[in-house]
């Protein structure tokens, strides 16, 4: 089944200059390999196309089941220059929650918040 990433992982974004780092953290250890395999830096950049203008690097922290995406050119030139209402890009991390992940049916019972959001599965 394909589900939105929000059922497998949580996310947070931070800012430094014109770079946003967006981390994706697995809710359960079983989900981490799926994230690592399917949410590559290339796919992340394609997903944020037009909003992230520079390169994207991905760092994995296996010990805590986390992927850290460092996206350059994501903050309109930097917090003070940005014309975006969300100058710091604090809301940018929410977008990746909509990235679709293929999940084996056996893990269905471990997905989080499946009753919460409309249109969670496709």
């Amino acid at each position: 089944m394909r589900v939105k990433l929000q059922h497998l992982a949580h996310a947070r974004s931070g800012d430094k200059g014109d770079t946003s780092n967006i981390m994706v953290i697995a809710y359960a250890p079983e989900f981490y390999p799926l994230l690592k395999q399917q949410l590559t830096a290339e796919r992340f950049k394609a997903f944020y196309a037009g909003t992230v203008k520079g390169r994207v690097d991905r760092y994995a922290v296996d010990g805590i089941g986390a992927l850290n995406f460092v996206a350059q050119g994501a903050l309109g030139g930097g917090v003070s220059r940005s014309l975006c209402l969300d100058n710091y890009g604090k809301a940018l991390s929410a977008a990746v929650l909509g990235f679709e992940i293929e999940v084996p049916d056996a893990l269905k019972g471990k997905l989080r918040g499946m009753g919460q959001a409309r249109g969670s599965t496709t």
């Binding site: 949580h10 947070r12 430094k16 780092n21 690097d57 760092y59 922290v61 089941g65 986390a66 850290n68």
Partner: peptide
């Protein structure tokens, strides 16, 4: 909890190493 600490661990971090 583990989630709040993990999120803050990588907050505004680029290369975690």
């Amino acid at each position: 909890n583990l989630m709040t600490v993990k999120e803050q661990c990588l907050y505004e971090v680029h290369d975690p190493a």
